[in-house]
Design a protein around this nucleic acid. Sequence first.
DNA 1: AACTAAGTTCCAATATTTGAAACTAAAATT
DNA 2: AATTTTAGTTTCAAATATTGGAACTTAGTT
Lengths: 261, 261
Amino acid sequence: MFDAPNGDGTVGKAMQVLDQVSSFGCPVRFSELLADSPFPKPTLYRLLQTLTNQGMLAFDPERQTYSMGIRLVRLAHSAWRHSSLVPIARPHIESLAETVGEAVHLAQFDNGHVLFVDKYKVTDMFDTLAQAGKIAPGYCTGVGKAILAFMTEAQQNRSLDQQSYKAYTPATLSDRTALVAELAWIRKNGVAYDREEHEQGIISIASPILTSKGRVVGAVSIATSTNRYKISDLKKQKPYLLKCANLIGTEAESWQVPTWS
Amino acid sequence: MFDAPNGDGTVGKAMQVLDQVSSFGCPVRFSELLADSPFPKPTLYRLLQTLTNQGMLAFDPERQTYSMGIRLVRLAHSAWRHSSLVPIARPHIESLAETVGEAVHLAQFDNGHVLFVDKYKVTDMFDTLAQAGKIAPGYCTGVGKAILAFMTEAQQNRSLDQQSYKAYTPATLSDRTALVAELAWIRKNGVAYDREEHEQGIISIASPILTSKGRVVGAVSIATSTNRYKISDLKKQKPYLLKCANLIGTEAESWQVPTWS
DNA sequence: AACTAAGTTCCAATATTTGAAACTAAAATT
DNA sequence: AATTTTAGTTTCAAATATTGGAACTTAGTT
């Protein structure tokens, strides 16, 4: 065996534990973690201790529970400001949202998932923060499909394997074959549509953000609700969307190109 | 030697590297990192590789630079939603901001620094996200002093050692003795004032958030600018501020108590 | 073409991590 | 109150991953 299945040493294991705690989404006990951990008891125990020491996790001694640590917020602030598309994309997203009068999302890809890094909605500017950092599946969102469609074949295969293909709604493309066909269409068409595939009543049109060399670095979407608009209405916004994605792509070029494996 | 000065094993070192990259605040080359790294070349090299593999860092192959990884944004989202005071404090902060008509900040402590986890300003709801995750020094901010004043002696000593005591403005308390005296006063008085100690023209009144057992878990502040108000005006808001801090403290009690060492 | 600096790999010495088992503390049950 | 069960913590020798000096390979200069 060469090229271990995953996990680089102790650090890799520690990150796996972080993910696990994060996946619980609420303070969690040692034994709950142990129950579905690949690690033996003392190993998990020490990893948790180390991470807590480091402020990556927080431990509540009264309830004996672990949750995500505050240090992550500081580190992520850095990531968000410097490493994502946000700083470049902000002005373009704002102006697109104002032109079309609907919510605009900016997303990047992280380990098979779509990660929303910014959002702008004309009416309520509220939940920007609540949205940033949120994740959604790749196979059933507009932004997800737009990114998947324009990946290299190797990246795409790897990502398609990571999808759950759970049918969130009747419209969800819930198997790989259907998705692959759709991706081919998207690649030809240039934009992806979400026809209530993730959430009933929510539709969107999404465009990949490409660098001049054709590398996908993220996606922008215009999202709306079915009781306001139909897919055919979104289709009319395509030129604005493409222009926005294009501007971001060009500027991202001369800035920074993140890597996903 | 027993009990190493800091750093738990490989994971600790990896986190140190993350911090270092974060402190650059922009994409950074291997050699720049190496220049002020305590680690020898191959060690640093491998840590960077591991972290990049894990998505905690992003590597731009064209420019050969590292920056913070997108995975952190996902992890921090979790932290922000579940482990901070934000979910409990939100409504109270909003209502305080509306009562007093000024910007209200919510902060927690992270490794000697003040970490802003939420902000509410009546007029512009814009930069909530831009603010969350931001850090500021402990010794020269209202929230920082409020938290320091109410720590246990052990925590306080540890934190006082971590301050830089840099004089940001003429009003900055730029040595430990002066700060200790001020903290004693704050402890007696119940609230801390920032008299343009961090930023010229910005003043604030801050209250610690205490649990019923007297444990500090964060701080709230009302901040304003000197061309609108004076410290004596802020003093009048003290009862509202205390009430808000108190409500948050009580609710935080029955929720979750994070640990800082 | 020769030189320099930046980035990458080797490999034996070394320090860390590992996990079965033993132990302790706290609940739950008799 | 005594006993059993469960959850959390520690031990320690064996197994393993990490370490870093030095050598090597690129890429960029002069």
